[in-house]
C-alpha cells in the first residue's frame, strides 16, 4: 500500500478512572481534580517528548477548528463544553490527549500515510505511562469500561483514510461498504465525500486483541486499495479520452479560478492526483508532497491561521475561498496533461 491511496491513519484510545463517575455523571470539582492531576503529570513526568497543555477556555473557535482539521482533536470534543475539560498535544503533534470529554481520558493519534501499527505502538506506550497516575476502570469480562456500554472493551477505535475516486465514480463504493460490514467495519465520507476521500473504521465492539483489530483494518484497506487501482486502470484503458478530458478540466480550474470552496479544491486535487499516479499529469508544484497534505492545508482554519494571519473572524468568509484559489493557482502553476 502506498501513501498515495492510503492517505492517513488515526486512532482513538478511551480510558476511564476507576474511582470516579463517568464524565457526564460526575461533579465538576471532581473532574477538575482529575484534569489537574493528569495535566500536572504531563508537565512534570519524564516523557520521551514534551507535552504541550492547552488552556481550552482561552482558545478561539478557529484554534479548535485547526486542531480538528489537523486530526488532533475529535469534532465532538471541540463542540462540547463543560467543566474540568483539558487538552494536550504530545511531541508537537504525534498524539494528543482529551481529558473529560465523553471519557475521562482519550488518547488521539494521527499521521498522514500508512502507519497504523506505529500509531498503536505509540498510543500503547503513552497509555502505560498514564496508567501510573490514573487507575483504570476495568472488568475482566467487559474490558475497559466506558459510560456507553457499547464502547466498553479495548477502548480502541482505528481509522484509515482512503482516497477512492475511481470506486466512487463507478458506483462501486456501496458494495465495498457492504463487504466492510461483514468484517465489523464501517465506512464514512470524510469532507462530505468530496474527492472520493473516505474513512474506514472498526465499528462493532471488537473483542479481539488490539493488534488484531489494527491488522484487520490494514488488511481490509489493502484489499480496497487494490480494487481502486484496478478500477482506475480499467477507466483509463477503456475511456482514455474522457479520463484526459476530466483531468485536464480540473487542472484548468485549479489554474484559473479566483474563488474556490474547500470541497471543489478537494475534487480538483483528487483528479490531478489520479492523473499524476497514472503518469498523465506533470505538476511541478506537487512534486514531493502528498495530495492529502495539500487538502489538509486548504481547510478553512488552516488558511486563516497559516495564510491570513488570523484576520478573519469566521470560517465561512468568502475571503477564505479567495485565498484558497490563489494557493491552488500557485501549486498548479505549470501543470499540464501529457
Amino acid at each position: 500500500m502506498t501513501s498515495a491511496t492510503m492517505t492517513a491513519s488515526a486512532m482513538l484510545l478511551a480510558r476511564n478512572d476507576a474511582d470516579r463517575r463517568f464524565p457526564q455523571a460526575e461533579q465538576p470539582e471532581l473532574l477538575e481534580e482529575l484534569c489537574f492531576a493528569v495535566t500536572g503529570m504531563l508537565r512534570d513526568a519524564d516523557w520521551d517528548r514534551p507535552w504541550r497543555v492547552y488552556e481550552l477556555d482561552e482558545m478561539s473557535p478557529i484554534d479548535l477548528a485547526y486542531l480538528v482539521e489537523s486530526g488532533l482533536m475529535t469534532p465532538r470534543f471541540a463542540e462540547a463544553g463543560g467543566e474540568g475539560r483539558g487538552f494536550a498535544v504530545y511531541g508537537e503533534g504525534l498524539a494528543s490527549l482529551e481529558i473529560n470529554g465523553e471519557d475521562h481520558l482519550r488518547l488521539v493519534g494521527f499521521r498522514t500515510g500508512d502507519g497504523l501499527e506505529g500509531l498503536w505502538s505509540l498510543l500503547n506506550s503513552l497509555d502505560d505511562r498514564l496508567e501510573t497516575t490514573v487507575s483504570y476502570a476495568f472488568d475482566p469480562g467487559w474490558g475497559y469500561l466506558s459510560a456507553n456500554p457499547a464502547r466498553a472493551g479495548t477502548g480502541l477505535r482505528v481509522y484509515a483514510t482512503l482516497h477512492l475516486p475511481a470506486l466512487m465514480l463507478t458506483g462501486k463504493l456501496a458494495t465495498t461498504g457492504l463487504e466492510l460490514v461483514n468484517h465489523g467495519l464501517s465506512m464514512a465520507p470524510l469532507w462530505g465525500g468530496a474527492g472520493g476521500v473516505v474513512q474506514v473504521s472498526n465499528s462493532a465492539r471488537q473483542q479481539g486483541p488490539e493488534s488484531e483489530v489494527v491488522r484487520l483494518v490494514s488488511e481490509v484497506c489493502s484489499e480496497i486499495v487494490e480494487k481502486e487501482r484496478s478500477v482506475r486502470k480499467m477507466l483509463l484503458r477503456e475511456n482514455p479520452l474522457q479520463a484526459r478530458d476530466q483531468i485536464g478540466r480540473s487542472l484548468g480550474l485549479a489554474q484559473h479560478a479566483w474563488t474556490m470552496t474547500f470541497a471543489e479544491a478537494v475534487n480538483l486535487i483528487s483528479a490531478a492526483q489520479v492523473g499524476l499516479e497514472a503518469g498523465l499529469v506533470e505538476a511541478p508544484g506537487l512534486a514531493g508532497r502528498s495530495a492529502f497534505s495539500l487538502m489538509t492545508e486548504l481547510q478553512p482554519a488552516h488558511i486563516v491561521i497559516d495564510h491570513m494571519d488570523r484576520k478573519v473572524g469566521c470560517l465561512e468568509s468568502n475571503e477564505i475561498d479567495e485565498v484558497r484559489a490563489r494557493l491552488m493557482r500557485e501549486v498548479f502553476a505549470g501543470a499540464c496533461v501529457r
Binding site: S135, G141, A152, E210
Partner: peptide, 26 residues
C-alpha cells in the same frame, strides 16, 4: 443490550498493568 449479535461478552485485549492478580487470572 450489547450482546445480542455476538457470542459472549469477553475482553481479549490489553489489561491494566496495575490490575489485581485476580483480574489477570480471570
Amino acid at each position: 443490550m450489547v450482546k445480542r449479535d455476538v457470542e459472549a461478552v469477553e475482553h481479549l485485549g490489553k489489561v491494566p498493568l496495575r490490575g489485581p492478580e485476580t483480574d489477570n487470572l480471570r
